[in-house]
Nucleic acid binder design. Structure first.
Lengths: 185, 185
DNA sequence: CCCCCCATGTAAGTAGTTACATGATTAC
DNA sequence: GTAATCATGTAACTACTTACATGGGGGG
């Protein structure tokens, strides 16, 4: 149960409305924690009634008004407490791995097409990460030196980049294996 | 919703009871799909009433009797249908990444101890995977050549190994970064 | 006029977790 | 006797997903 904490981090980085949070969970923080707008609004309500966050009505021209949330003292305390808790091992859900093992009881070669499409999606995500890294951390427009917040965002992004590179290499391995099994039939 | 399918794959690899499935979800298939025994029993009931699987009462000596499940024709068909569906992108939940970004608003150096412990857990998992790989696929006791099922299990395990190696390298990067930020205060 | 973006929600259902419960057998 | 393993479940709760709903503004 860390959606609350992901929201706290995002609101500390930048206060915003439920809608804006939902956008961030499609990119940025969404690269390592996903949530839909329905879930976000529900959790925001709970967090507000627990006084973890405070809402401020913001009137806007040319677009609907919004409620801008920011982190209150209790929210900061809750985040701090959570940060000091032990890091729990992640519970893994890797659908493709199940499919690959399941392919032994169906047609391994039939998976190749889907794995290629999946690989393409990861290649695009890697390119997106690398562009973001140049823009925010390593390119000529990036601030130097980076402050703590930026250093920590950068090391998380490096993790995403490493993950995508590893995944692409493994998917090549998977495609080779599936092709080899198809050829020997 | 792939627990059903993970169970189908596991039962095709080897029929077994709910209890045995729960054990497998602690290792083997559990490396890429987790489930508790409560959840497994619930889903097994549904799968049996949908005629995806069949139960057989097995009397045992020295231990309680059990219900051994195996995959029925409808279950095989359901698995085959699922295998041909598009591979959906995984929804990411990476608590440590949230904590690292959150540390910017607390004490980055305080995370180091927990990250080291977390790294240790991943190092052990990698060692476990490598031992399993030698035992089942690359060692002198392993069958050669491998059949389709073993080749596919092996490529999935190689994915797990690659993931752990990548994770260890990234965690070293994280620890370095946290130490650097601690030192410059 | 229709579609897209901004903005916020409700309702219903599915999936997953945590706590509790039972009962047999084996090992110390 | 008491702890551990085998074996199967119920109950209550929390988290998450999917579908539906509303309404203003801007662009083609």
């Amino acid at each position: 149960m860390a959606l609350e904490h992901a929201i706290l981090v995002s609101l500390l980085e930048q206060p915003g409305s439920g809608y804006e949070l939902a956008r961030r969970f499609d990119r940025s923080i969404g690269y390592f924690w996903t949530a839909t707008h329905q879930q976000i609004y529900r959790v925001l309500k709970r967090m507000e009634s627990d006084a973890w966050i405070e809402a401020r009505e913001v009137a806007q021209q040319d677009r609907p008004d919004k409620k801008e949330y920011s982190v209150a003292a209790l929210g900061r305390a809750a985040l701090s407490g959570w940060l000091h808790e032990p890091i729990e091992p992640e519970s893994v859900r890797h659908e493709l791995a199940v499919k690959i093992r399941g392919a032994a009881f169906d047609d391994p070669a039939a998976l190749i097409r889907e794995v290629r499409r999946y690989r393409q999606a990861h290649a695009e995500r890697l390119a997106h990460y690398l562009a973001g890294e140049r823009r925010d951390f390593t390119g000529p427009e990036a601030p130097a030196p980076l402050d703590d917040r930026q250093e920590l965002q950068h090391v998380v992004l490096r993790g995403g980049i490493a993950y995508e590179q590893m995944t692409l290499a493994w998917l090549d391995d998977v495609i080779d294996t599936l092709e080899r099994l198809g050829a020997r039939r």
